[in-house]
């Protein structure tokens, strides 16, 4: 067992939450984007997370239970919002423009969840560190 195992898991969690925040920012920035290198409007993206075993944890009993997290993939939302804007250069012949399916309120809610999750992991890290430091103070 290693106190650094908790650190490794915290690190993976923080990386995952950072990636989620990156994707949310990207969705917010591209809320009106109608042109992409692949063609068509920007597609709303979401991060899919997967559990990952941590090398050499606690021993056999907890080996199966303790998991870090990793970014499995980035899913794309293929749906588009059709908005009537005949003056837009990307409007079709009926005057409708395909806009990304980004809902500002949903993205803000996701952002709050992500930042709170990040804070929770930081708190877990601090608690682990304090445990280690308290252990070193033992017997003084």
């Amino acid at each position: 067992m290693d106190i650094f195992t908790s650190f490794k898991i915290c690190s993976s969690g923080l990386t995952a939450q950072r990636a989620k925040m990156d994707v949310i920012t990207s969705n917010l920035a591209n809320v009106e984007t109608t042109r992409t290198p692949e063609g068509g409007p920007y597609k709303r993206k979401t991060v899919i997370l997967a559990a990952e075993p941590v090398a050499d944890v606690f021993g056999t009993a907890l080996n199966a239970a303790v998991r870090a997290v990793k970014i499995d993939s980035i899913a794309e939302d293929g749906a588009v919002k059709m908005m009537y804007e005949p003056s837009h250069p990307d409007a079709d012949d009926k005057g409708y423009v395909a806009k990304p399916n980004v809902n500002l309120i949903m993205e803000m809610a996701d952002m709050i969840t992500t930042s709170r999750n990040y804070e929770a992991i930081v708190t877990a890290f601090d608690a682990t560190k304090n445990m280690a430091l308290r252990t070193l103070d033992m017997g003084k």
Binding site: S11, T15, R18, F125, K129, A132, L136
Partner: peptide, 14 residues
């Protein structure tokens, strides 16, 4: 990223 640096520092510290 920043958190990796901080965690590496904490490991070294402990």
């Amino acid at each position: 990223s920043i958190h990796e640096a901080v965690i590496a520092l904490e490991k070294a510290d402990i």
